[in-house]
Amino acid sequence: MRRNVRLISYAIFTSVIFLLGSSLLYGLELAELSGEIVFSSNRSGSWRIWMIQADGSNLRQLTDGKEDENDVDPAFRKDGKEILFTSTRGESVGIWKMSINGTNMERICDGDQAEWSPDGNKIAFRREESIFTRDLISNVEKKISPDDWPHCSGPAWSPNGKTIAFACRWDEENALFTVNADGGQPVKVYDKKGACEPHWSPDAKLLVYETETHICTIQPDGQKNRLITYWGGIQRYGQWSRDGNHLVYCQGVSENGPWELYIVPSGGGTAVRLTEGDSDMNPDWH
C-alpha cells in the first residue's frame, strides 16, 4: 500500500514538474545561474578584460595596462583555464592569451576575433579580413576562407571541432557561412538583415547570431530562424551558457551604445540585466 501511495505521489509530482517545466525554463533569476562571464569593458578608462559570475556577483578586472592599450574580445578555452583576447599592446593589433586570473599573458600572433578549438590546441581568428586557423603547438597557420572573399569576420569553432562558422560581407549585405575546419568551399547558412557574429550552441544544433538590431538563433542548415531578442535599441554579441539554456548579450540604446550585458533564456523570454554603467561588450560564458 505504501508503495502504491509513493507511486501515485511520484506520478503527480512528476506530472506537475512536466507541466511547469517549460515555464520554469523561461522564467529567469540571475541567482539560479552558474558559471563565469568574461567581457571587455571601458568602466575603468581604457578597454580592459573583466569577469563576473553569471549570478551577478564578484565583478573583477583581469587586465591592466598603459592608457593607450586596449583589450577586447575575450574567449574562454573549453576547460575554462585560459582566455584568448585581442589587444593593441605592442606595435600591432594581436591575439593574446592569459590565465583566467589575468596572469601569464602571452602574445600569440597578429590578428583579432580569436576563438579556441574545442581541444584547445588550435585557434581560429581573423587577419586582414580573412579567416585563419593556427596550430598552437606547431604554429602552422592555414587560411580557411576563400582568397577572393572580402570582409570575413567572427570565426566560431563547432563543438566537435570539424566545422567553423563565420560571417562575410559582400557589398552591403552580411551572410553567415560554415566551412570545414581544414578549409574548402563555404556553405551559406543565412544572408539577410546583416547576419554576423555566429556562435555554436553546446549541442551544435543551433547558431546564435546578430542582425543589425537583434539576436537570433538558426540551425546550421539555415532552417528554423528565430528571433530571440526583440527589444528596443540594439542587441549584439550573443553567447551561450555552458548548458545552452541561456544567452548573454549586449544591449545598447543605439548603434553607438552605451552597452550593458543582459541574459535571456536561449529559447526566448524575459531578459535580465547583468551589468550597468559605462560600456560592457563581447561577453563569453564558461
Binding site: 507541466l19 511547469l20 517549460s22 515555464s23 525554463l25 523561461y26 522564467g27 528571433l227 530571440i228 526583440y230 533564456p265 529559447g267 526566448g268 523570454g269
Partner: peptide, 10 residues
C-alpha cells in the same frame, strides 16, 4: 490560451 501561457516562451 492556457497553453500559450504555460509555454512562457515567445
Amino acid at each position: 490560451n492556457q497553453r500559450i501561457q504555460e509555454t512562457g516562451a515567445p
